[in-house]
C-alpha cells in the first residue's frame, strides 16, 4: 500500500510514545546508572566504570545459565513450531468444531503463569499427581524435584503444553486466509499432500510463523515464573535460566551493580537475535514479492 508522507502523524503516535517512554526509558536509565556505580546506600556511591560488566562476563555460573537458556529455548522452538503447524493442519475448517477447538486451545494461554507452574507441580508429583503417578506405575523412576533430567523434561513439557496453542492459533489464521480456489487448482493439477503443504500452505503461513517464532523466542528467553514455581531452579541449578539468575542476583543478594550490568547484556542479546531474525525474514519476504 502506498503511504502518504505526513509528519503530522506524529501527533497520533505521541500518546504511545509518551506512555512507553515513561515506563521504558526512565527504568532503563536507572539500570544504566546502576551498572556503572557501586552503591552502598543512597548517599554513598562510587563510579566504577565497566567493572561490573567485566565481573558479569567472567561469571561462570552465568555462562552456565546462558547455555541452559539457549538449549531450553532451542528445544522448545524445535518442538513447538512443527507441532503447532501439524495441529493447525488437523483443525476443522468449518462447523461448530471450529469454535470449540479455538476455546479449548486458547485455554492454557489464559492461565496465570504461576498457576501453570502450580498445575504441573501437582500433576508431576508421584504422590498426588496423575502424571507422576502414571509414569511411576509404568516402572520408570521419575522425580522432577530430585533428578535434573526429569526436571528438564517436565519444564519443557510444561512449556509445550502452555505455548504450543499460540503457534497453532497463528498458523490456523494463516491457513484460513488461503482461498478454496488454490486447493481446487492443486487438486486438478494432481498435487500431492506434501506439495500442497510446501507450495500453498507454508508460504501463506510464513508471516504468521515469523510472529510465532519471535514471540516464542522472546518469551522463552525471559521465562521466569513457571520454572520458579515448578522447580525453583533446581535441583541444584539445573533449571536456573537467565531471568531467575538475574532476579536472584538483584532481589535475593541485592548485588545491584552486577545485576544491572547483566540486565543490559541480557536485553542486548534478545534485541540482537530479534533484530537479525526480523531483518532476515523481512528481506526474504520482500525478495519473494519481487
Amino acid at each position: 500500500m502506498n503511504k502518504i508522507t505526513n509528519n503530522k502523524a506524529w501527533f497520533l503516535v505521541l500518546p504511545v510514545f509518551l506512555i512507553v517512554a515513561i515506563s521504558a526509558i526512565i527504568p532503563l536509565m536507572t539500570v544504566v546508572n546502576y551498572s556503572v556505580q557501586d552503591i552502598f546506600d543512597p548517599q554513598t556511591r562510587f563510579f566504577v566504570g565497566t567493572e561490573w560488566f567485566k565481573q558479569v562476563l567472567e561469571d561462570t555460573r552465568l555462562h552456565d545459565a546462558l547455555v541452559r537458556q539457549i538449549i531450553y529455548t532451542g528445544s522448545i522452538l524445535a518442538i513447538e513450531i512443527p507441532l503447532g503447524i501439524a495441529i493447525a493442519l488437523t483443525l476443522p475448517r468449518k462447523g461448530w468444531g471450529v469454535s470449540a477447538c479455538m476455546v479449548l486451545l486458547a485455554l492454557p494461554l489464559l492461565i496465570p503463569w504461576n498457576v501453570v507452574g502450580t498445575i504441573w507441580q501437582i500433576f508431576g508429583r508421584a504422590d498426588i499427581g496423575l502424571g507422576g503417578y502414571v509414569i511411576r506405575s509404568l516402572g520408570i523412576s521419575y522425580n522432577y524435584s530430585q533428578n535434573p533430567m526429569d526436571a528438564w523434561i517436565t519444564v519443557v513439557v510444561m512449556d509445550v503444553w502452555h505455548w504450543t496453542s499460540l503457534v497453532v492459533l497463528l498458523c490456523y489464521a494463516g491457513l484460513r486466509s488461503i482461498p478454496d480456489a488454490y486447493y481446487q487448482a492443486a487438486k486438478i493439477d494432481g498435487a500431492s499432500n506434501w506439495a500442497v503443504f510446501r507450495f500453498i500452505q507454508l508460504p501463506k503461513m510464513q508471516s504468521v510463523l515469523v510472529i510465532g517464532v519471535l514471540l516464542r523466542f522472546m518469551d522463552s528467553f525471559m521465562i521466569y515464573t513457571e520454572p520458579f514455581v515448578l522447580t525453583g531452579g533446581g535441583p541444584g541449578n539445573s533449571t536456573t535460566f537467565l531471568s531467575q539468575y538475574l532476579t536472584r542476583m538483584a532481589v535475593g543478594q541485592f548485588d545491584l551493580g552486577p545485576a544491572a550490568a547483566f540486565s543490559i547484556i541480557y536485553f542486548l542479546i534478545i534485541l540482537l537475535v530479534c533484530w537479525v531474525f526480523y531483518t532476515v525474514v523481512m528481506n526474504a519476504g520482500k525478495r519473494e514479492e519481487q
Partner: peptide, 8 residues
C-alpha cells in the same frame, strides 16, 4: 525481560 525492569 520483566526481570530487568523489576527494581527500577
Amino acid at each position: 525481560p520483566p526481570a530487568v525492569f523489576l527494581l527500577p
